[in-house]
């Protein structure tokens, strides 16, 4: 039996080595991005692992380099934070509200609302790009924060996830609370939401990630420099003729780092929630 034990030990070691190697390959683009953002400019995209380092790329980002006119990177960063948080929070609040009604409130027309949501979920959203832009323009929201927040204030996916989760919470809890005189709003925020912490983490992170990295919509509904999100500014500054690879990597770090940090903070809860939501 000792031989077979050795063999499985060997196998496990190989498995760890292969997994680690693959993981390194997968996170290498991130490493490359960080290293390149600190690399001396004559080494950016010239060396896989740069040998000399500088803060020049970051300084350029905030001073504008030789032109002396800094692009609004910090401003764009705060635009991104504001827009992403506002729109994600609205998606969460509305998601919880709508789902509570769909899962736990009996009302005439419930199955109708359910069917409309399902229909919209399976409807190819591609058709809505142009007319949604026109709606925003028509109501006078073009080039405002609202243009980036309101059309992304409701998430069908969040409603779908919460509805399924709420359905699994026993109605007895709600009835007991009602006997104690709790209102529906209290039940929602004191029972339903606290009971769905892990799935809330998953929904919040997925919505935030998606919102943070949105390009197309934020690009078409906003025009002035001071309104652009970081993702859009990055895309515009380093398009086909971008000549400053160092600052490009620095700006990429600026965009990537916050979302990675938030994810790592919540990663444990995220894992629990994922295990639940995938079952």
């Amino acid at each position: 039996m000792v031989g077979s034990n050795d063999r499985s030990k060997f196998r496990l070691t190989v498995r760890y080595i292969v997994a680690t190697a693959l993981l390194l390959v997968m996170v290498f683009p991130y490493l490359y991005m960080v290293l390149s953002s600190f690399a001396a400019w004559n080494q950016v995209d010239r060396k896989l692992i740069p040998t000399s380092y500088t803060l020049k790329s970051y300084i350029w980002l905030f001073t504008g380099g030789e032109s002396g006119v800094p692009r609004p990177w910090l401003h764009a960063f705060f635009n991104s934070v504001f827009v992403s948080l506002a729109s994600t929070l609205l998606m969460m609040v509305f998601g919880v509200m709508v789902s509570y009604a769909l899962a736990k409130v009996k009302f005439r027309g419930r199955s109708f609302v359910n069917n409309v949501i399902l229909f919209q979920m399976f409807f190819p959203a591609i058709i809505l790009l142009v007319p949604n832009f026109l709606v925003i323009q028509k109501v006078g929201l073009y080039d405002t924060y609202w243009a980036m927040i309101i059309p992304k204030a409701v998430s069908l996916w969040a409603i779908f996830m919460y509805t399924n989760f709420f359905k699994a919470i026993p109605t007895a809890f709600i009835e007991a609370a009602k006997l104690d005189g709790a209102t529906d709003l209290q039940i929602l925020y004191k029972i339903m939401v606290p009971m769905s912490k892990s799935i809330t983490t998953v929904i919040f992170l997925f919505l935030l990630m998606e919102r943070w990295t949105e390009l197309l919509w934020d690009m078409i509904v906003v025009r002035s420099d001071g309104m652009l999100t970081l993702n859009v500014l990055l895309s515009q500054m380093f398009g086909p003729y971008g000549a400053y690879p160092g600052p490009m990597y620095a700006a990429s770090v600026l965009l990537t780092l916050p979302i990675v940090i938030i994810f790592l903070i919540y990663s444990k809860k995220f894992k629990e929630g994922m295990q639940f939501s995938l079952k």
Binding site: Y30, Y32, L215, N231, L234, G242, I259, F263
Partner: peptide, 24 residues
């Protein structure tokens, strides 16, 4: 869970950033 979190990290990337890295 370390590996799970690690492999998930690319999902956090913006398509713009991933494209710029790829291009560089």
């Amino acid at each position: 869970s370390f590996y799970m979190v690690g492999f998930f990290l690319p999902y956090l990337s913006s398509g713009v950033v991933a494209s710029l890295i790829g291009k560089g």
